[in-house]
């Protein structure tokens, strides 16, 4: 159940692309609970998804969403 940061970020990324297996989910959750760096990286990868979605929108739509 102990995984490295390298492994944890790999799983965090894959979690955005497929449903992780039970053991992977548990290992990732345990790791993130004690690792600030990987928690930051995981959040930032999720943020990238939102950013790319917005990137495809018109500039004025982004403005509209802001209001």
């Amino acid at each position: 159940m102990i995984i490295t940061c390298k492994e944890a970020t790999r799983l965090a990324s894959q979690g955005l692309d497929r449903k992780l297996g039970f053991l992977d989910r548990v290992a990732l959750r345990l790791h993130l609970a004690i690792c600030k760096g990987c928690t930051n990286a995981a959040r930032q990868m999720e943020f990238l998804r939102r950013a790319i979605t917005r990137l495809g929108e018109d500039a004025d739509e982004r403005g509209a969403l802001r209001r």
Partner: peptide, 10 residues
């Protein structure tokens, strides 16, 4: 397998 430079919070 540890971060060489740990990601900072944004």
């Amino acid at each position: 397998g540890h971060w060489i430079e740990m990601p900072a919070a944004w």
